[in-house]
């Protein structure tokens, strides 16, 4: 991801800043400008605290790699890694890695909390892109 694209998403990647519709109480992550439920255009900022549960998951054994080797993609170095769809307490779902646990500890329905990790490093010269991953609540 280019630096400007990443920078624009920093509030979401670092702090899970989404939106809430004050009319119908729907929550959105990533943020949206129009409420998909009621059509309201005036949504308010909402910070998700990152608690949620695993809806489904997989173990990625063939990662996305940069074909030219210009990107030191952390995903490529961590295979196998656990990828999940997490449902946040407020309702929205997102896709993220589950870290710091054994593969067989991960189960559908398990509680997780967000942590701050490196996602992608653009080579030894490039920018480091940080963002959310999740950890099992123990």
């Amino acid at each position: 991801m280019t630096v400007s694209k990443f920078w624009r998403n920093i509030p979401q990647y670092y702090n899970l800043i989404g939106k809430k519709c004050p009319e119908c109480n729907s929550y959105y992550f990533p943020p949206r400008d129009v409420c998909s439920q009621c059509g309201n255009h005036k949504l308010e900022e909402h910070k998700f605290d990152g608690r949620g549960e695993i809806v489904t998951f997989t173990i990625i054994r063939t990662p996305l790699m940069d074909p030219e080797g210009e990107v030191i993609d952390i995903h490529a170095q961590t295979i196998p890694y656990i990828l999940a769809i997490v449902k946040l307490e407020e309702g929205p779902k997102l896709t993220a890695e589950i870290v710091d646990c054994e593969i067989d500890e991960v189960k559908i329905g398990k509680e997780v909390g967000a942590v701050f990790r490196k996602i992608v490093e653009k080579g030894p010269h490039g920018v480091i892109q940080y963002g959310y991953k999740f950890k099992l609540v123990r």
């Binding site: 952390i74 170095q77 961590t78 870290v99 710091d100 942590v115 701050f116 990790r117 490196k118 996602i119 480091i128 940080y130 991953k133």
Partner: peptide, 16 residues
């Protein structure tokens, strides 16, 4: 450190 951890991520968790 995990492969996705560095001084910034460690500082963030400690600061939280």
């Amino acid at each position: 450190p995990g492969i996705d951890e560095d001084s910034a991520t460690i500082a963030v968790e400690a600061a939280k």
